[in-house]
Amino acid sequence: MTPTTKIYDPHAARGVSGFLSDLWVGLSMVELWRAFAWDEIQHRYRRSALGISWIVLSFLMFVAGVSFFFAGFSGRGVESFVAYVAIGYAAFIFITGNFVDGCQVFTSSSVWIKAVSLPYSVHVYRSLFRSLLTFFLQMVVVIPILVWAGIRPGAVTLLFVPAVLVYLLNAVAVQYLLGLVAARFQDIGHLVTSIVRLMIFVTPILWVREGLEGARALAADLNPLTHYVEIFRAPLLGEMPRSTSWLVVVVLTVAVWGVVAMVAAAFRRRLPYWL
């Protein structure tokens, strides 16, 4: 074990390089954040009889219920609509989950942040790992639905891989940013929860954007979540995502990273004082 020297002054670990090293060193502590995440998952489901199967079960209940009531309005065949809802809802849960979890990613870890000097990103990866597990379990359910709906994988299907990578990239930035902001301004958590609740209705998950015209089509396109969901859902349904969607997502990803880099560079080390 090599000796370690740490220097703490008002400028220590400031700046973008401090933030990037926090992200990198945190990422390398994979065993730690995986252990934190498993511990959290275990105690969340420990006392329920069905345990982790609840993730799959509640997902199926939602997809079945929505398909039953909304399939007739969609203009798609029933099988295709079920697949559409299942994929879209899984993506939606993952994306908005990052917003909600992000608001408490640091406040819920205050017991550790105030006790052990670790890269703060460890707590972000912990939170992300847990929501990835949910996402993964839901995708396992989606596969038989795709088979049943008669959707066969093709070359276009592979486009879901970059979509997942972009999701992860966004998730880290959004959780880190909201974690900091919500620790300082506690109203943010309430605001985000309220907005997310509304998003399920204004994002094309329960309804289909194609076929809409005029103001409503425009409103759907102004919602960034429409595009985030699109780049993942379309390839899995065997359709080519619109290039507009990819463009919007790439621009927003760069913007989010720019903002989080600035905020974290300036205020990251004030976090323990805010908790």
């Binding site: 370690t4 220097i7 008002p10 105030k114 006790a115």
Partner: peptide, 26 residues
């Protein structure tokens, strides 16, 4: 322990550090 950053001044700690400040933390 490296939890709080100084507002002014400078602290240099050489060596792996473990702190037990509050039994409910960590």
């Amino acid at each position: 322990a490296g939890i709080y950053l100084p507002a002014q001044g400078r602290v240099r700690v050489e060596g792996r550090t473990t702190s037990l400040v509050n039994i409910n933390l960590g």
